[in-house]
Amino acid sequence: MKALIESIVTPLVDHPEDVVVNEKVEESKVVYHLTVNQDDVGKVIGKNGRIAKAIRTVVYAAKTDANKRIYLDIM
């Protein structure tokens, strides 16, 4: 899942070397923290959050464990 998030976000940003995805597994959920360069935050979020919503839609659709919810935090 980390590779999927990185492959979606990397072409969108000007500083692909600063894209970091951290995974935190909890009992009933998995949280992915996406961190990008401060200059690229607007590009990842998009106008009215449309790009962020699209990224979340793809990630949620690709989940592998049916018992855990997936969350994507963009920082």
Score class of each variant (00 low, 15 high):
residue 72 L to C: 04
residue 17 E to V: 11
residue 35 T to K: 14
residue 18 D to N: 15
residue 11 P to T: 08
residue 30 V to P: 07
residue 31 V to F: 11
residue 15 H to V: 11
residue 70 I to C: 01
residue 66 A to D: 14
residue 55 I to W: 10
residue 8 I to R: 11
residue 7 S to C: 07
residue 29 K to T: 10
residue 55 I to E: 07
residue 60 Y to I: 03
residue 23 E to D: 10
residue 32 Y to K: 01
residue 33 H to G: 03
residue 58 V to A: 13
residue 6 E to M: 00
residue 41 V to Q: 09
residue 50 R to N: 07
residue 72 L to T: 03
residue 48 N to I: 01
residue 6 E to Y: 05
residue 6 E to D: 06
residue 49 G to N: 03
residue 64 T to S: 13
residue 53 K to S: 14
residue 52 A to M: 03
residue 72 L to R: 06
residue 33 H to L: 11
residue 67 N to S: 15
residue 18 D to M: 10
residue 38 Q to N: 08
residue 66 A to C: 10
residue 5 I to K: 14
residue 69 R to P: 07
residue 20 V to F: 10
residue 46 G to R: 05
residue 34 L to F: 07
residue 44 V to D: 00
residue 40 D to F: 09
residue 38 Q to G: 02
residue 63 K to I: 03
residue 54 A to I: 02
residue 29 K to P: 06
residue 56 R to Q: 03
residue 58 V to I: 15
residue 13 V to Y: 06
residue 35 T to D: 06
residue 36 V to Y: 12
residue 14 D to L: 08
residue 19 V to T: 09
residue 57 T to M: 12
residue 63 K to L: 05
residue 63 K to V: 06
residue 67 N to Q: 14
residue 75 M to L: 13
residue 46 G to F: 01
residue 40 D to G: 01
residue 60 Y to T: 06
residue 49 G to L: 02
residue 27 E to A: 14
residue 36 V to C: 02
residue 32 Y to L: 00
residue 69 R to W: 10
residue 37 N to L: 00
residue 15 H to P: 04
residue 2 K to Y: 09
residue 36 V to P: 06
residue 47 K to V: 04
residue 24 K to H: 13
residue 28 S to V: 13
residue 53 K to T: 14
residue 66 A to Y: 14
residue 13 V to N: 01
residue 13 V to G: 05
residue 8 I to Y: 12
residue 37 N to F: 08
residue 36 V to F: 12
residue 61 A to E: 07
residue 65 D to S: 08
residue 26 E to L: 13
residue 11 P to Y: 01
residue 62 A to L: 09
residue 44 V to A: 00
residue 6 E to L: 01
residue 1 M to A: 11
residue 74 I to M: 00
residue 67 N to G: 11
residue 41 V to H: 06
residue 68 K to Q: 11
residue 43 K to F: 00
residue 19 V to L: 09
residue 63 K to S: 09
residue 2 K to W: 02
residue 24 K to S: 08
residue 75 M to S: 14
residue 42 G to P: 04
residue 22 N to I: 09
residue 42 G to R: 07
residue 62 A to I: 05
residue 48 N to T: 06
residue 33 H to A: 03
residue 35 T to L: 04
residue 7 S to A: 12
residue 7 S to L: 03
residue 65 D to E: 09
residue 37 N to G: 02
residue 32 Y to C: 00
residue 2 K to I: 09
residue 43 K to M: 08
residue 19 V to R: 15
residue 4 L to Q: 11
residue 51 I to S: 04
residue 50 R to F: 01
residue 67 N to Y: 13
residue 30 V to Y: 12
residue 68 K to I: 05
residue 67 N to E: 15
residue 11 P to E: 00
residue 70 I to S: 01
residue 10 T to E: 10
residue 39 D to V: 15
residue 61 A to L: 09
residue 44 V to I: 04
residue 75 M to A: 14
residue 37 N to R: 11
residue 35 T to A: 06
residue 62 A to D: 02
residue 37 N to K: 13
residue 54 A to N: 05
residue 75 M to R: 14
residue 45 I to F: 03
residue 44 V to P: 05
residue 23 E to L: 05
residue 26 E to C: 01
residue 39 D to G: 07
residue 41 V to G: 02
residue 51 I to W: 03
residue 69 R to K: 14
residue 49 G to M: 02
residue 62 A to E: 06
residue 43 K to S: 06
residue 62 A to W: 07
residue 75 M to D: 15
residue 75 M to W: 12
residue 40 D to V: 08
residue 52 A to T: 02
residue 8 I to N: 10
residue 21 V to C: 00
residue 54 A to R: 04
residue 67 N to A: 14
